[in-house]
């Protein structure tokens, strides 16, 4: 199965380790137990997938830290990138 790496237990995104097609299932690694998730859209290698629903204006967490805030609601399994999150540094 394709894989994604979760960097910290608090994270709501994981990094995909290969190009992902819509409806593809992924194994999420890095937590104590591995889980699976289904991508809702294409996600290129090295980009991020939402592990749960992220509400608009909610914090996006990677490495257990805030990497930005959601500019719109991000459904679970979607591609998380500059089109739906923005830096907190302005």
């Amino acid at each position: 199965m394709s894989r994604a790496l979760m960097m910290h237990p608090k994270d709501n995104v994981a990094t995909v380790l290969e190009d992902i097609a819509p409806e593809q299932n992924l194994e999420i690694e890095g937590n104590e137990e591995t889980s699976t998730i289904t991508a809702t859209e294409a996600i290129p290698f090295g980009h991020k997938i939402a592990l749960r629903k992220i509400r608009s204006n909610a914090k996006v967490l990677k490495y257990g830290e805030v990497i930005g805030t959601a500019t719109k609601e991000i459904p679970v399994g979607s591609h998380v990138h500059v089109h739906n999150i923005k830096s907190t540094r302005g």
């Binding site: 290698f45 090295g46 991020k48 490495y63 930005g68 998380v80 990138h81 500059v82 830096s87 540094r89």
Partner: peptide, 18 residues
């Protein structure tokens, strides 16, 4: 960096600091 999947300067720097 954006093509590679980095969405913000925080994300880029956090990866380096790791």
């Amino acid at each position: 960096n954006i093509r590679g999947g980095l969405s913000s300067i925080e994300e880029k720097s956090l990866g380096a600091i790791k």
